[in-house]
Design a protein around this nucleic acid. Structure first.
Lengths: 191, 191
DNA sequence: CCACGCATGTAATAGGTTACATGATTTA
DNA sequence: TAAATCATGTAACCTATTACATGCGTGG
């Protein structure tokens, strides 16, 4: 049950937060490695509190109804620590877009492949630009070696995301070139 | 419902297959982009047949009990085609290992980070070697430009996997170096 | 006063895993 | 004859998405 640990981790970083705030993190910075709906976050927080890994109290909101603000307990920190020490949690890939590329040969229309590649590439490039903005923000705190350990780890995680996106964009560009050549060979220059 | 389309696509590539055979593909070549259990595959195939997207018949096995062998119908090909043309299906990332890196600063022990990175890197490198073997196999059919469209697309999908793994391995190596330097600075050379 | 953002939740459904149940054939 | 591989499935459970329900406060 990894969402448990992701929430524990984010709460430990932030000190304390409400379910609603956590959701906005999944919509922003955290979205590059995790996503969850509010309807999954609220029950999960409740369950973590029942297990004694989180504590909560009600606090008035600046604007709008009362917020239930959670923070990690000692037991929660111990659980998080165990999870971190348990080795990499890799999980099973379910990358539908790779499947699409593999099967796209059946369409027998390289224009479709071209169109598809242009689309994915654009999406990946946008995400990359976004992550690089966050990277620059962290880097403003100082040169890599002088960063505190917590920021060093944040930067590292961010850069993994960036490296993966760069690889995808690079692949898409190379593949687009190859597809272009194929199309050119199939439909030779018309007078 | 993407498993539906992945099964449709694999069946279209293979011509026909049983549930058991499809599962072995998820354990082998297909594992780099999709995974499913037999207990999910069997009901899905049955449902696809009820929807008229697959046809099946019983065939004796070389060894063991009878097999139910499926193949894609015209309706199935139409459905697959729609799915391919619908644009990239990106899906939400759930990369627990990135979360682990981000939170690992809390452990306050760079040796743990070092250990973690060594582990993931090894796993990724192994997968990369495996994918490169398949790549070489496809390449034996001839130079890229002369490959039929179906193999060209297979090669492209494979290379996306390879590019992503290479990026991850490269990142892990760089990060390991940085962590090593941090450890060295924290514990200066002893006499 | 209405739309929007803040804030918390429940219910129904879909997707996926683990455990269980069965049985044939081959190899050690 | 016992273990391994081939082969198909069901049932219980967990995880995650979509839709629904409620209500406060601010700005237009």
């Amino acid at each position: 049950v990894s969402l448990d640990h992701v929430l524990l981790g984010i709460l430990e970083c932030d000190g304390s937060a409400s379910g609603y705030e956590l959701k906005t993190e999944f919509n922003e910075g955290a979205r590059h490695y995790w996503y969850a709906e509010l309807s999954q976050i609220y029950p999960t927080l409740k369950r973590l509190e029942q297990r004694g890994l989180l504590g909560s109290n009600l606090a008035p909101s600046e604007r709008g109804p009362e917020r239930r603000v959670y923070e990690v307990t000692d037991a929660g920190r111990a659980e998080l620590s165990d999870w971190l020490r348990a080795g990499p949690h890799i999980g099973k890939d379910r990358l539908a877009y790779i499947a699409q590329i593999l099967f796209m040969g059946h369409l027998d229309d390289l224009r479709e492949t071209e169109h598809f590649l242009t689309n994915v590439c654009e999406g990946w490039a946008t995400k990359g630009t976004f992550l690089r903005q966050i990277e620059r923000q962290i880097q403003r705190a100082g040169p890599d070696e002088q960063l505190p350990d917590s920021l060093f780890h944040q930067l590292a995680g961010l850069r993994l995301g960036i490296a993966m996106l760069d690889a995808k964009v690079g692949w898409a560009e190379d593949t687009l070139t190859a597809v272009g050549e194929r199309i050119a060979r199939a439909e030779p220059v018309e007078v």
